[in-house]
């Protein structure tokens, strides 16, 4: 019997009659129903139309109103899940403890979301060389094993890393541009989807969006797993 990747309890999979009788594909689940219920999906008609945060109606949240005052850039983000306790615990285990196989929990769902955006190219937010050495993987690319993506962005070589998650909101909003465009030819005239794991203040993904837009992209949108 399979074991839930998150709570390690054994799970039994009950097939429906259709699945038993007809040659329909059977989706392999990696986490049990109970764990899956802990994650709160965001519906786009009940979310901020700019950053994708969960709201009661489709309006623009206060954070995004502030963003719109200071920048003229057109940028829309869609977030899949609320960054609740379960999602925080997941990120802790996946990203910080480094349990790479946990990516399988969200992979099918996330792939669907990426494909639905119908962008010309998909650009995951890169991680620094240092992180790659210790963590061994890029947490965003881990979520996209079956998606074709490009890497026109790179982290500045003199960028010394202070973890975004260890800063407070004010410091995060002040952080300077960490990225450079290493391959501008990939972006020019295309519609680009930037993918990240968590949208917190929006600083990181907006830095990336700014660069990509300046490099001549036709359209820039964002997709994050959590907000």
């Amino acid at each position: 019997m399979a074991e839930c990747l998150l709570c390690h309890r054994s799970m039994s999979h009950q097939l429906t009659l259709t699945q038993l009788l007809l040659p329909v594909p059977i989706e392999k689940r990696c986490c049990c129903e109970r764990c899956w219920q802990q994650f709160e999906a965001i519906h786009s008609d009940k979310a901020c139309s700019v950053c994708g945060r969960q709201l009661t109606t489709r309006t623009i949240c206060q954070d995004c109103q502030k963003w719109q005052k200071q920048a003229t850039m057109e940028f829309k983000n869609r977030a899949c899940f609320v960054y609740n306790e379960a999602m925080q615990a997941f990120m802790q285990q996946y990203k910080f403890a480094g349990d790479y196989r946990l990516a399988a929990v969200f992979e099918p769902f996330f792939r669907q979301q990426v494909n639905r955006q119908k962008a010309d190219i998909v650009v995951p937010i890169p991680v620094s060389e240092e992180t790659m050495q210790t963590r061994g993987f890029n947490q965003v690319m881990g979520l996209l094993p079956n998606v074709v993506y490009q890497s026109p962005l790179a982290i500045k070589s003199n960028w010394h890393k202070v973890r975004q998650s260890s800063k407070n909101r004010h410091d995060r909003l002040q952080s300077p541009q960490p990225f450079i465009i290493s391959r501008p030819e990939l972006i020019a005239g295309k519609s680009v989807l930037i993918v990240d794991d968590v949208y917190t203040t929006g600083r990181t993904i907006r830095h990336a969006a700014k660069l990509i837009q300046d490099a001549g992209a036709r359209q820039v949108n964002g997709l994050t797993l959590a907000r």
Partner: peptide, 15 residues
């Protein structure tokens, strides 16, 4: 069950 990118591996049991 335990492959990282670039042909690296980790142990999920005692993580």
């Amino acid at each position: 069950r335990c492959t990282l990118p670039n042909n690296q591996f980790y142990c999920p049991s005692c993580i």
